[in-house]
């Protein structure tokens, strides 16, 4: 039995070349994390909960257009701008590289929303409600957040904790890519992704699938020096996200008029 706690540092890699924009991750996240249903009302009020969302951008001019998808979730920044501005330490950085939100402490100043460049923090404007038929689908491992507090992606910390307890404490193994995949201890969005565009793992485990990308991105500051397609969102802000994106490889780029740049 392992008595010492394994020193993980979680990270995610999102391969934009594989993402089809199917939104399976969005549905999985809602079901796993007791996220209230986004009704039409909520969307019209611009208050929809999207712990993970697929941002869709159009490239080119109609009819010569292509849709681009960008799944955005909490980037779990090492230098998170949302953390120092909270007056009550409701959000802080834990030793596993996660940016965690403590619901009990939160008073709802919403300064962290303002200071999040990725727009991935969600405020409970109303008391959350579910249709009566969905009462029994709530996940007992996850708190239902009340009105007036902030919530956001946790990298499914409840699954990670369960994995650490069963695999590491009881069985004496190590929570790695294989165990997480086989026994569903990784985040729900990763398990749901049909094209494996989302990869999750331990940055400190050299055998994990994500660690080469993190090593590459950490070693080379400039994107053009990197050997892989890795980049981070708003890298120039130096928030040091624990989420890495892999660039899309476009085999058939749009035919552009002269002077236009391919974005």
């Amino acid at each position: 039995m392992a008595t010492e706690r394994v020193n993980h540092k979680w990270g995610m890699v999102i391969d934009l070349d594989r993402c089809t924009g199917c939104q399976a991750c969005v549905v999985a996240c809602h079901a796993e994390n007791n996220v209230p249903i986004n009704t039409q009302d909520r969307f019209l009020q611009h208050r929809a909960y999207e712990w993970i969302r697929i941002e869709r951008y159009w490239e080119g001019e109609f009819p010569n257009v292509k849709a681009r998808f960008l799944p955005v979730l909490c980037q779990h920044c090492e230098n998170a701008p949302c953390e120092p501005v909270c007056p009550v330490y409701a959000t802080y950085h834990n030793d596993q590289g996660l940016n965690v939100q403590i619901y009990n402490r939160c008073v709802g100043t919403r300064y962290c929303i303002n200071n999040c460049p990725y727009q991935v923090r969600f405020f409970n404007w109303w008391e959350p409600q579910w249709p009566a038929t969905l009462r029994n689908q709530l996940n007992p491992d996850v708190t239902v957040r009340s009105r007036g507090i902030m919530e956001k992606c946790t990298f499914c910390i409840q699954r990670l904790r369960r994995g650490e307890l069963t695999v590491e404490r009881q069985e004496g193994g190590r929570l790695d890519d294989k165990t997480m995949q086989e026994r569903n201890f990784g985040p729900a969005c990763v398990s749901a992704c049909p094209t494996n565009a989302l990869m999750f793992g331990d940055q400190r485990d050299p055998k994990s699938a994500i660690s080469p990308y993190f090593a590459d991105a950490n070693e080379h500051v400039h994107e053009e020096d990197r050997k892989t397609r890795a980049y981070r969102l708003l890298e120039e802000m130096n928030t040091k996200p624990n989420v890495i994106y892999l660039k899309k490889v476009d085999q058939y780029p749009l035919k552009l008029k002269q002077g236009e740049q391919n974005g």
Binding site: Q45, W125, W126, E127
Partner: peptide
């Protein structure tokens, strides 16, 4: 709750 205001996500 603050839903009665016009505030929204960004």
């Amino acid at each position: 709750g603050l839903g009665v205001t016009g505030l929204n996500r960004p």
